[in-house]
Amino acid sequence: MGTEKIEGFQHKIGIRFQDLKLLQHALIHSSYANERRMTKEKNNERLEFLGDAVLELVSSDYLYRTYKNEPEGKLTKLRASLVCEPTLAGCARDIDLGKYIKLSKGEDMTGGRDRDSILSDAFEAVIGAIYLDQGLETAGKFIEKYLFQDVENKVLFFDAKTNLQEIVQGEGKGSLSYELIKEEGPDHQKVFTVEARIGDRVIGTGSGRSKKNAEQHAAFEAIKRYKKQAASENEDGHSCI
């Protein structure tokens, strides 16, 4: 990675590395290393392993201190929603991490820079690099800045389909289904658009890189709509969905 580009990334995340090689290492995907016949330890998988452990510790500490009255089971569920692949990929997109990752030509051409698995792994690798370079405190501040914002919505999104199903069943207004209404883009960069429906009525619409992700977004949209309307419609004695 060019000096100017890596300087730009450091500026974006607000951290200046003492050892730039650690940051460069965190951004080397296995496909790039394989294409250039590097040894396995040159890719970012070991840093990802370390970053995953740091992330689990920091997120556990945060949840323990923030949700003081919640039992272990609820804390485990909350943590799972924060450290899952889609959530971490979203955090990676917030810092434009995809454009800094070193990929093979083939991986790059097939949409690797916006693939959830690659983005989430690189985000964890960056955490690992920060930890090695500047310790747990700085790594924790990075995680707090980019992951612990809007936690309630992250948790809601993680369980959106399950939560929506429970809401629909509680309302007793019909069965919930998801309908694919549109596919756009080339095979390696498809965007799917899905509607969440009760019968023929659309209650939420969402798009994503997979049908499953699009369904999750549609369910999340339906729940947000439900929560927004719940108070006023309940006062009138009407159903919200």
Rank of each mutant, 00 (worst) to 15 (best):
G185W: 08
K182F: 01
L132D: 07
R37V: 06
K145W: 02
Q134N: 05
K21N: 13
K77L: 14
S59Q: 02
G206R: 03
L55E: 08
E184V: 05
F49G: 01
F148L: 09
I28W: 04
L63H: 03
K102W: 04
T110P: 02
S177P: 00
F148D: 06
D187Q: 08
L119H: 02
F192D: 11
E183C: 00
V202G: 07
K77T: 11
L176W: 10
G185P: 07
R225E: 11
D200H: 11
K224F: 15
Q216A: 14
V155C: 06
D114F: 04
A26V: 10
R209E: 05
E85F: 06
V126Y: 08
E48F: 04
F17N: 13
L20T: 11
E235Y: 02
K77E: 15
G237Y: 02
K102C: 10
G172E: 14
H217E: 15
T87Y: 07
L23N: 12
V155I: 15
E235H: 00
H217V: 09
R197C: 15
T39V: 15
C84S: 09
G112R: 08
Q189C: 07
H25G: 02
I223D: 01
A139H: 04
T162W: 05
I198L: 09
E179A: 04
N69W: 13
R36N: 12
N213G: 10
A89F: 03
K212Q: 14
C240E: 01
M109Y: 06
R113E: 05
E35G: 03
E184H: 06
Q134I: 02
S210G: 10
I28R: 11
V151D: 09
E183Q: 11
K224T: 08
E85S: 11
A160D: 00
A125V: 11
R16F: 13
H188C: 04
E4C: 00
I203G: 02
V151P: 04
D133N: 09
T162Y: 13
G51K: 01
G185F: 02
S120E: 05
E179F: 08
E166P: 00
K99V: 06
R201Q: 13
Y64T: 12
Q229A: 15
I143G: 04
N213C: 05
Y131A: 12
E137N: 13
E70T: 04
Y100P: 15
V194N: 04
G14A: 08
S120T: 11
L156H: 05
M38S: 03
S104I: 05
I167K: 01
G73D: 15
K227F: 14
A219Y: 08
C84T: 04
T205H: 03
E137W: 02
E184M: 11
M109C: 08
S60Q: 10
